[in-house]
Design a binder for these strands. Sequence first.
RNA 1: GGAGAGGUGGGUGAGUGGCUGAAACCAACAGUUUGCUAAACUGUCGUAGGGGUAACCCUACCGGGGGUUCGAAUCCCCCCCUCUCCGCCA
Length: 423
Amino acid sequence: MIEMQVIRAQTADVVERLKVKNFDAAEIIDRILEVDGERRKTQKSLDDTLAESNQLARDIGALFKSGKRDEAEQMKERTALLKQQVKALQEILETLTAEQDKLLVQLPNLPHASVPQGKSAEDNDIVHSEGEVPVLVPDAMPHWELAKKYDLIDFECGTRITGAGFPVYKGKGARLQRALIGFFLDSAVEAGYTEYQPPLLVNEASAYATGQLPDKEGQMYHVQLDNLYLIPTAEVPVTNFFRDMILRQEDLPVKSTAYSACFRREAGSYGKDVRGLNRLHQFDKVEVVQITHPDKSYDTLEDMVKYVSGLLRKLELPFRIARLCGGDMSFASALTFDMEVYSAAQQRWLEVSSISNFETFQSNRMKLRFRGEDGKTILAHTLNGSALALPRIVAALLENNQSPEGIRIPKALLPYTGFEVIV
RNA sequence: GGAGAGGUGGGUGAGUGGCUGAAACCAACAGUUUGCUAAACUGUCGUAGGGGUAACCCUACCGGGGGUUCGAAUCCCCCCCUCUCCGCCA
């Protein structure tokens, strides 16, 4: 969430900037400041009352020791009164704090100055395009037909054993999945990321820290019996590795990567968006996460975009990079670049990676800090990106590389697949 | 799942009702000494909230939450976690 001190010091600016995200914060922020003032006032009275109470307790102790029992007994009356006051003040403080938090978590992160105004994906800035869009034969098939033709993915089987959106990969299809995961992880490790294998279920506190709760509750699968959530992305467990930590400045940047299955309910999606591999309830993804010094985070964001561009280049896929507009950005992000590959048979761009700088939005929630030069604790910046999400990559690979001779596998994957063409 | 033991600051670990936010040691940081390194010595050394122009002061926190008491790291209750043994099991 946005830091309280920022809201206090730059109130008007915060309201103004949130407008870029099409969020009218004026009313909430007024209320936050009001509650904040009340809260602080209450805190002061409570502290003062406790201070008096503590002093009395010490005095009474001293009196008992010196044998002045009567005097001590007298003073106890005052203590009883203070005790009542403390209890009342504590209740008020608790209410105010809860209210303030409830309001604060409703505020999306402040967008970076470079974020364009806009409502939807159509208003995103395409900042880069590269690669040749392949010219396909007239009877080219979309990936779901290719998957069937070459017996790579059995959508019906997945539907039968689980439900729609849970495909079963088979034969060379399964091998291609494993190849991509291996390729992505090896590349990330080579780029200096530490590989992790995270839990696929997380507790409430973790889901809250990265911003999935309280907001996007309906997007996650929830195991009620144990109150655990299936992760929608490895970002959640991996970023939470560092929850409540104070890092040393020389440890920054912390670079982590993990492969995981990802689970998303995707409530409300329909139509051509969910056809084939376009949108699934379970999919595979390799994620990269960085924790950086605040001064470096935007350089890092650029590095991450370059890194993912390199992966797409090696996969020989035409891609473009979009700077998301305020309306298309996620709640927690300050600046996001989407990477999209061209899916030639569907003739549309598919998002395969989303790379974001969250600045202190997540670290503030999860108290992820480092110690600065002067010894003070400073909130770190967190960033993450897909590198990469598999299904749409597979879709594009199948569609773009199809020919009468079969589906060609890009060279970079050969060591991982062991075959160069799917026939 | 059953039985027992235990959870204290970055680490080890004292502390069973009253200046204990917490001894001591280690680690870390700064300085002195030193040709350099090491050693030795001196000092600093938790986090958060609040008040004050400031020096500084107050408050909370010893796994989490309640309770007893004038006063709780210390006593009581509930929960969580870790370890050991047994059972079960990929």
